[in-house]
Structures are given as C-alpha cells and as structure tokens.
Amino acid sequence: MKKFIFILGIAMAGIVNFSLAQDCEIDQYTKECQANLQDNYIYLKTFKIDELNPSKKKVQHTYVFSKGKQYSLNICSETSANQEGVVVNLYNSRRKLLGSNYSKGKYQDKIVYTCGATGLYYIVYTYNGDSKKLCGSSVLGMK
C-alpha cells in the first residue's frame, strides 16, 4: 500500500509540473511575433499579455517613441485564430487615441505607427474574450 501511494505521489508531481509547463507557452508567442517583424525592424521590447482575463480586462504599457521613426507592434495570442479579442489602442501623452488594431468588428494582429512627435505613448491592451486566462505576447520593433 505504502509503495502504491509513493508511486502515485511521484506520478502526481509529474502531472503538476507538466500541467504548469503546458499552462501558457508565452515564449512561443514572443518568438512568433519576433519572427513576424519585417525586415529592417529592430526588436525593442516584449509586452506579455498573459495577465489579461475576464476579471482583469485592461493592461497598460508605456514607451517613449521618437519622431521620424516607424514602430511595428505585433500581437500573437491563442485567440488570433478565432478572432476573440485582444484590442490594442495607442494613445499619445495627452491620452488622445491615435489608433487601434480593432475596427468594424475586425481585429488585426499588427499596428505600424509612424511617429511625428517624440514623447510618451500609452499602449493599452483590452480583452473582450471569455477565456479564463489569455495566453499571448506582443512585440515592439523599430526602424
């Protein structure tokens, strides 16, 4: 009996580790997004979006963009295929909306932003889906 419980324990520990590892392969999404950066774009940052879920629907990131530069924000998530929604809005330092990846019911997985004014910008992620926990990542590149 003791032997059986011991073996069962080992198996359970394995399952716990396996399920944790399977939980969210976020690095896979980051790599996918990096690979989708077009030529001449330099990778700058990763904004992981695994914090989003139905009870935490909004995550905000900030970055200083430079005048004359072009930035590409790529979004990669498990919801990309079924269009269940990660909305990314870009705001200037005065919190005025400049653009969004969501328009007329369609989600796009890439925003290309040409900056005219150096300053602080807000990148706000909102989740419209109902998955318990969203698994995904987004990558910022510059040229």
Binding site: N92, L98, K110, G116
Partner: peptide, 12 residues
C-alpha cells in the same frame, strides 16, 4: 497585409 497603419501628423 491588413495591418493598421497610423501616420501621426503631430509634431514636436
């Protein structure tokens, strides 16, 4: 490719 292009005409 369907990506959103934002041309910011603000200046500093």
């Amino acid at each position: 490719d369907g990506q959103v292009l934002i041309q910011d005409n603000s200046t500093t």
